[in-house]
Structures are given as C-alpha cells and as structure tokens.
C-alpha cells in the first residue's frame, strides 16, 4: 500500500517530499513494534518449517508400505527415540550418546583443521608473496587439491600405521587446499599502498606478516577457512567409517552393519546440523575479525 503511494507521488507530481516523510515514519514505527518483529521472525522461520513438514509427510507416505526398504519418520522416532531424546547418555565404551560421538569427531576436526589452518595460511602467504614460490608450488597444489579425501587414506594408513593419525591426516590434507589458495589470492591482492607504508616503516617480514598481511588478507583467509571446515567435516565422517573408533562416522558404519537404519537417519541429522553450525561459526568469527577491513 505504502509502496504504491510512493510510486504514485513520484509519477504524478514533481515534489517527492511527502512520500519520503511517509516512508521515514513507517520505518521509525517498525523499530518499536513487537508485532512487526514477530511477523518478521515468522516470515523467516515459517518457510523452512513448512518445507520440512511437507518433506516428512511425503517421506511418511512413501515409506509406509510394509515392503518399503527404508523406515518412515514415525518408525525412526519410535526406534531411535533414545538417540534423539538423550544425546548425552553414557553406558560404557561403545554405547554412548550421539552428542558424545559428534564431540569426538569434532575434536579430530579441530586438530586436523587447526593444523591445516596454520600450515595453509603460512604456505598461502609464501605463494602469494613470492612469484617463484607461486610458479613452483601452484601447479602442484592445483593437482593435489583435486584428489578425493579418501584416496589419501590408504597411503596415510601405510605411513602412520595407526588409524587415528591417519584420520587426522585426511582431514588436514582435505581442508588445506582452499586455505592455501584463498590466502594466496588475498595476499596477492594486498594494495600496493599498504606495502609502501610497510616499506617506509621498515617492517621486518614477521611484522609485515602479522600487522599487514594477515589483516589485509583476512576476508580471503576466512573464505578459505570456511570452505576448509566444510570439507574437513565431509572427510571426517568418511574417514571414521573406515578407521573405526567412536566418532559419528563409525557409528553410521556400525549401525549399517547391524541393520539399524533409523539410527543412521538420526546420525545424518546430527551430522548435518553440526556441519551447518561449524560453517556458521567460522563465518561469524570471520565477520567479527574482519570487521572494518573491507570498507575503504
């Protein structure tokens, strides 16, 4: 309604002032209006809730025949209720809640991804800063980054002769490439002015790295970290399926071997939500750290 009036005034008459005033008061009123806030919240939350509900209904109908090979949501709810309702139960070494398993997997991701972040930013800085390092290393990186995570696993099992460092290595090697490549692009894009400032101040390489390079390239670095954490979460589940242990990936493999399909579905939901949270976490840290850097 109000949009219509604005358009009308603009088209019909030459002073657009009354329309501007209307728009402004509407904006000011909205700020103190709890109904409007609730409405906005509903408009962002409602669509996904409706979609999920529809999906559950379709799934329920599709899988409700007795001959169906997959369980419907109602069966998942009934048979895996303890997994859904009690994420933190602990009944002995192999019988623990899914939240514990997720935490164990997250711990592996934290170590592997943390190492990848440190090494990746350092290597990316080198490649971005030195034309010769780029010429030498970039082709190697471009080839290695296309290798699927699990293809590294046999090699790392052979090298480390133990499953848990192998899983860490797979996470590391999966998530490091986007970190290297994005950091290198960010470093290459540091404005010449900042470099000149650093040269006039005679910053040594370490000071330049900490005070100019990392903050200037931070938006790019965090893009790389965000892609990297997503990849490492993909890799951990696959790696744990093969290496065993108590992570969420192994849980799925174990459930498959004992034909507990509802458990697998619950585990998938846990993995998805955790991955989503990880992505948002890195994005939020990035937004906090890089505040102000993108503005000129």
């Amino acid at each position: 309604m109000s949009i219509q009036t604005i358009e009308d005034t603009k088209v019909k008459t030459f002073p657009a002032k009354p329309a501007e005033i209307i728009a402004f008061t509407a904006k000011a009123r909205r700020r103190f209006d709890p109904i409007a806030i609730a409405g906005k919240l509903a408009s962002t939350l409602m669509p996904p809730v409706v979609v999920i509900a529809l999906m559950l209904v379709v799934w329920q109908i599709a899988c409700s025949s007795p001959t169906s090979s997959l369980p419907p949501p109602s069966q998942v709810w009934n048979e895996a209720y303890d997994l859904i309702a009690h994420p933190f139960f602990n009944n002995g070494p192999q019988d623990i809640g899914l939240a514990w398993r997720v935490l164990i997997s997250l711990q592996r991701v934290a170590i592997g991804f943390g190492l990848a972040a440190i090494v990746g930013v350092a290597l990316g800085a080198l490649v971005g800063q030195s034309i010769w390092a780029m010429r030498g290393l970039d082709p190697v990186f471009q080839i290695l980054r296309t290798v699927p995570p699990l293809a590294w696993l046999p090699l790392s099992l052979a090298a480390f002769r133990d499953s848990s460092p192998s899983a860490l290595f797979v996470i590391f090697i999966t998530s490091i490439w986007p970190i290297i490549i994005n950091t290198a692009v960010g470093v290459r894009n540091i404005p010449q002015d900042y470099r000149n400032v650093a040269r006039i101040l005679r910053l040594n390489p370490l000071e330049f790295f900490i005070k100019i390079m990392v903050p200037a390239a931070a938006p790019y670095i965090f893009t790389g970290l965000r892609i990297g954490i997503g990849l490492s979460w993909l890799a951990i589940v696959a790696a744990e399926m093969l290496t065993g242990g108590v992570g969420i990936g192994f849980f799925i493999w174990d459930a498959w071997n004992s034909s507990r399909l509802p458990d697998i579905i619950v585990a998938l939901a846990y993995i998805g939500i955790t991955g989503f949270c990880l992505d948002r976490l890195v994005a939020a840290v990035g937004a906090f750290v890089t505040r102000g850097t993108t503005a000129k």
């Binding site: 404005p191 002015d193 900042y194 000149n196 400032v197 040269r199 006039i200 101040l201 005679r202 100019i212 903050p215 200037a216 931070a218 890089t290 102000g292 850097t293 993108t294 503005a295 000129k296």
Partner: peptide, 19 residues
C-alpha cells in the same frame, strides 16, 4: 637507496590501514 621513516610519505589516497 631504500625507503625509511626519515622520508615519510603522505599518500594521495591516505593509505591508512582500515582495520
């Protein structure tokens, strides 16, 4: 033969570090 703080430059586009 190299830049240094005894010859400070004020750049046209200020070159302040935005962070």
């Amino acid at each position: 033969d190299s830049p240094g703080p005894e010859r400070a430059v004020v750049f046209q586009n200020h070159s302040l570090l935005p962070w």
